[in-house]
């Protein structure tokens, strides 16, 4: 019961971290936020694991921590250090407007979630709202930002949102599927890092 409330807090923190991401132009901060966000996701999964006592979810927790909290941010930081960009300079829409837009996306996703909600969701109906909102805001980040880094962060946010939605609707995916998805993600980050570095070297982004 109190665990439910705490799980709710973790989910909220996922959304808050995305909002902070929208509000800040600094890329280093964004990567840190992504790491924090993944940690919150991992805790949420852990709570589910304790609640259902499911080995799948425990495994999922460990993998999330290893990949999303540690490895991916580590590689992103490494790339960032080489590229030497510290902040997003111009965006298609200004920060306050983007945040207000993110707010309206949250309202919209709550509306959508209420429309298509059905029972069988682990921790309250609003997990789906939050994951939808996170998804939309991540997509918005990818659209409005110009730097490749921000777009990667947006992409990773979308991935987290899908992960959250999957974990809230089902009681965790099979471990193998999750592992595969995470490995795909990891490889794509590696490829993107190499791409950024090469672009930097050849075209001077």
């Amino acid at each position: 019961m109190i665990m439910e409330k705490i799980a709710e807090l973790f989910i909220i923190l996922i959304l808050v971290s995305v909002v902070l991401n929208v509000s800040s132009p600094f890329i280093k901060f964004a990567i840190k936020l992504y790491s924090f966000q993944s940690l919150m996701l991992a805790f949420y999964i852990l709570m589910g694991a304790v609640h259902f006592n499911s080995i799948n979810l425990y495994g999922s927790f460990v993998i999330t921590v290893i990949f999303k909290v540690i490895l991916i941010p580590y590689f992103l930081f490494k790339t960032l250090k080489k590229v030497k960009i510290d902040k997003e300079i111009d965006m298609y829409i200004g920060i306050p407007e983007a945040v207000v837009f993110a707010g309206s996306l949250t309202l919209l996703s709550n509306l959508i979630a209420q429309k298509i909600i059905n029972t069988g969701i682990t921790f309250g109906s609003f997990v789906f709202t939050i994951s939808l909102a996170t998804f939309l805001i991540g997509a918005m980040l990818m659209v409005t930002r110009k730097t490749l880094f921000s777009q990667i962060i947006g992409f990773l946010t979308i991935d987290n949102a899908i992960f959250l939605a999957a974990n809230s609707i089902t009681h965790g995916m099979p471990l193998l599927v999750e592992l595969g998805v995470l490995f795909d993600l990891f490889v794509s980050i590696l490829i993107l890092s190499v791409l950024i570095l090469n672009l930097r070297r050849n075209v001077a982004v």
């Binding site: 309206s104 309202l107 709550n110 509306l111 209420q114 429309k115």
Partner: peptide
């Protein structure tokens, strides 16, 4: 009410 809630908030 499903819609009015959102419009009132806005």
């Amino acid at each position: 009410n499903l819609y009015m809630v959102y419009f009132s908030i806005i």
